[in-house]
Amino acid sequence: MFNPSPKQFKFIKALLFVLALLPAVRLLVFGFTDRLGANPIEFITRSSGDWTLYFLCITLVVTPLRRFTNWNWLIKLRRMIGLFAFFYGSLHFTTFLWFDHFFDIAEMLKDVVKRPFITVGFIAFVMLLPLALTSTNGMIRRLGGKRWQWLHRSVYAVAMLGILHFWWMRAGKHNFEKPILFGTIVAALLLIRVYFAWRNRGDGAAKSRTAVQKRQVTPTLT
């Protein structure tokens, strides 16, 4: 089983950080070299939206992948990936607030209330805020592992709302390929988690207790 040394792990984490920044760097480079196309704002909005969903999916993959491979060290990368989902979500929201509404909050809120596709996207973004804010070690300690975990399970709801937002956006074009792909991935990941929970319950009480304990400990790892 692959288990990186602290030095190797540091390298893996740094590499992942650089890779995760690439989509943002690409937007910057394209912006400065006039390669964002005829409608640069649409390009940025779509790209940042796509990457928010990609990173949400990647965070959700971490735990199943860890269980299947027993690579427990993977969990130590999850916070960073989650924060990148928040980063791209913020970029996506900012393009909407800036370029669609020129920071007119009242106008923006009117849009949020009036259009279900924006409503769900906005709710998903707002729901990411407490997750980002409670991502520090201090907050995990203060909340306690169990409560922290309950709160952070809402990331599934965020992913589903994000996909619904994407689905409705594409509904006008009848072009559901990508939303269906995202939806299938998230549904599969959720099913795997349900399966894990069901299997844990099926085992002896002692084993399930250790499982719970183990799960409580994991978030405090960095």
Binding site: N39, P40, R115
Partner: peptide
Amino acid sequence: PRWSQATERRIGEDGF
């Protein structure tokens, strides 16, 4: 139903 038609973005002009 999903967006306002009150405004528009002129390609090549209206932007950042």
